[in-house]
């Protein structure tokens, strides 16, 4: 089972991101389970959503405490929430930011973790360009596909289509595609460094 935890703030499409990811995984024949952390949702409040992916029925119903991947939609949460709690040693981390891990004050994580599992991605900027709104969720899923290889970019597009009207989906798919390319390039640079 592959478990993804997504952190963000109310209004950033965190829950939708988990749902799109589950739709993407389903479209490739996997079992998948997406659910939000349940609370009194309000704009700006920290929000967590979860997605499990497996090749057999997923029966477990508890929140994900040991994620294989962390998607962080809002880096300002770094100082508010224990985002890396339970992260698996080989786990993937994708942060929506135009800063580096060093600039975010994450030197310890960067030193101790596999470098090819850590990526930053300016998802909000990419979304502004392709969606016209600062909604980083679709771009992050594109980046996640590139980083982890758990799902394809085509599946991400299917997931986006499942949640949005064709017109809005098109912009989000463009954002996911751009993010996919960005992360692939980062990983190639790392591999050849």
């Amino acid at each position: 089972m592959f478990q993804v935890r997504i952190h963000g703030r109310g209004g950033q499409g965190v829950v939708t991101a988990a749902e799109m990811l589950s739709l993407a995984a389903f479209s490739e024949g996997h079992h998948s389970q997406a659910f939000p952390s349940f609370g009194s949702e309000r704009t700006g409040a920290p929000v967590v959503a979860y997605c499990r992916i497996d090749d057999k029925e997923i029966r477990i119903r508890e929140p994900i405490t040991e994620p294989d991947a962390l998607l962080i939609q809002d880096p300002t949460l770094l100082h508010q929430v224990d985002l890396f709690s339970g992260l698996r040693p080989q786990g993937y981390v994708l942060i929506n930011t135009s800063h580096s891990f060093h600039e975010l004050g994450l030197d310890d994580l960067y030193r101790d973790h596999r470098k090819d599992r850590l990526v930053t991605l300016p998802a909000t900027e990419i979304a502004r360009e392709h969606v016209g709104r600062p909604m980083p969720n679709a771009a992050l899923l594109g980046g996640f596909a590139a980083l982890s290889g758990q799902i394809t970019l085509e599946a991400v597009a299917t997931g986006i289509h499942g949640k949005f009207s064709p017109k809005i989906a098109a912009g989000n798919i463009a954002a996911a595609t751009a993010a996919y390319g960005y992360v692939r390039q980062q990983m190639e640079e790392l591999a050849s460094a």
């Binding site: 988990a18 589950s22 739709l23 998948s32 349940f38 119903r61």
Partner: peptide, 12 residues
């Protein structure tokens, strides 16, 4: 049916 755990979960 369990609120949130089922009502708000996406699954097959």
């Amino acid at each position: 049916m369990d609120g949130f755990i089922l009502t708000h979960a996406y699954e097959r």
